Amino acid sequence: MKRLLPTLILVLVCIGGFWYASSQDFFKEKPEQLPALVQVQSGDVERFTIQNGEAVTTLERQDGKWAMAMPSPLPLTSYGADAWVSSFVGLKKDKVVTADATDVSSFGLTEPKVKLTMQAAGGVEQVLEIGDKVPVGAAYYARLGGAGDVFQLSEGDYMSLVKQPLDFMDKNAVLVEYDKVRGLSVSWKDASWTLTKTEPDKSAFESKWTLGERELAGNEALGFLDRAASLLTDQLPRRAAEVQGLGQPELRLELKNAAEDSGESTVTYTGKVEGDLVWIVRAGSDWALAVPMASVQELADHAKEK
């Protein structure tokens, strides 16, 4: 038995090693990593165009920042264009349908409805054509550069790339940076109130606040800030100069924020009613954003609930 003991130990070690290797997928063939569809770095992209039918949206870098060149300038988010570029340069062929296809009429690619054009530094240009949706599954037929393989583009990639101007726009009518807020004042028609942070060195949630002469806990104050931050638009903006009557607004909202020099800065918003919308303009901005009047009314009425 003693002679067999080393052999038994060796067998147990081998079994244990095999079990561990199997649990770590050492014996499974790893799937082939598909190469990127385009060999371009995100930071080198200078311009891109989304053509969807007759609608054309173009964004381009200007002085290091993204701007909308077509159909018209808009206030943009800081992340929308970068996210689009990351999605484009990260594309892979999910599945090749026909290699080096010559007849693409059955894929909706003879005159594709959607064309995505990306232009990068050094004169690099890539055009992705998107045709019909595949009969079975969540994907679309596509090809690069108007030639070569027809492949499947996943519906997720399609949704992240086929955008309209509103998708890139900053929809916040009022910018609320919670922990920087020192005070919020609202005057809407006959209602008027002021929310003030009484412990400026604490976070919005941890601080105590006052609403007029009433003291509020942080979680109660967040209800006011949430409603101000929820003043969002779902339509394209107008130039502030086009909004009539802003000199006599129904809405006046002021946000006092902590400044970098330990002081305070005040941002003023005014709003004018048109139908069931309130067009809100931030002082110094060229843009007016429309929000539902019901949302403004909810913000104003929140003080009555406290």
Results as ranks from 00 to 15, higher is better:
Gln39Asn: 14
Gln39Ile: 12
Val40Lys: 00
Val40Gly: 06
Val40Ile: 12
Val40Arg: 01
Gln41Tyr: 13
Gln41Glu: 12
Gln41Phe: 09
Gln41Arg: 13
Ser42Thr: 11
Ser42Asn: 11
Ser42Phe: 08
Ser42Lys: 15
Gly43Cys: 06
Gly43Arg: 05
Asp44Ser: 05
Val45Asp: 06
Val45Asn: 01
Val45Ile: 14
Glu46Ala: 14
Glu46Ile: 12
Glu46Gln: 15
Arg47Gln: 08
Phe48Arg: 01
Phe48Pro: 01
Phe48Met: 09
Phe48Thr: 01
Thr49Leu: 08
Ile50Gly: 01
Ile50Cys: 01
Ile50Pro: 00
Gln51Arg: 04
Gln51Trp: 05
Gln51Leu: 03
Gln51Gly: 04
Asn52His: 09
Asn52Leu: 05
Glu54Ala: 14
Ala55Tyr: 13
Val56Gln: 11
Val56His: 11
Thr57Asp: 13
Thr57Phe: 07
Thr58Ser: 07
Thr58Cys: 09
Thr58Pro: 01
Leu59Cys: 04
Leu59Val: 05
Leu59Thr: 00
Leu59Ser: 01
Glu60Tyr: 00
Arg61Met: 09
Arg61Phe: 11
Gln62Cys: 06
Gln62His: 06
Gly64Phe: 14
Gly64Arg: 09
Gly64Ala: 15
Lys65Arg: 15
Lys65Val: 15
Lys65Asn: 15
Lys65Glu: 15
Trp66Val: 03
Trp66Met: 11
Ala67Pro: 04
Ala67Met: 08
Ala67Arg: 14
Met68His: 02
Met68Glu: 03
Met68Arg: 09
Met68Ser: 04
Met68Asp: 00
Ala69Leu: 07
Ala69Asn: 03
Ala69Met: 10
Ala69Phe: 07
Met70Phe: 07
Met70Asn: 12
Met70Ser: 10
Pro71Phe: 11
Pro71Gly: 05
Pro71Tyr: 06
Pro71Thr: 10
Pro71Asn: 07
Pro71Ser: 08
Ser72His: 15
Ser72Tyr: 15
Ser72Trp: 13
Ser72Thr: 13
Leu74Val: 01
Leu74Gln: 10
Leu74Arg: 09
Leu74Phe: 08
Pro75Gly: 03
Pro75Thr: 08
Pro75His: 10
Pro75Met: 11
Leu76Glu: 00
Leu76Val: 03
Thr77Ile: 09
Thr77Lys: 10
Ser78Pro: 02
Tyr79Arg: 07
Tyr79Leu: 13
Gly80Pro: 05
Gly80Phe: 05
Gly80Cys: 03
Gly80Ile: 05
Asp82His: 10
Asp82Leu: 14
Asp82Ala: 13
Asp82Gln: 12
Asp82Asn: 12
Ala83Gly: 12
Ala83Tyr: 12
Ala83Gln: 13
Ala83His: 05
Trp84Val: 01
Trp84Pro: 06
Val85Met: 08
Ser86Phe: 15
Ser86Asp: 13
Ser87His: 08
Ser87Asp: 09
Ser87Arg: 04
Ser87Lys: 05
Phe88Arg: 01
Phe88Ile: 00
Phe88Gln: 03
Phe88Cys: 02
Gly90Cys: 10
Gly90Lys: 11
Gly90Thr: 09
Leu91Trp: 02
Leu91Ser: 03
Lys92Leu: 06
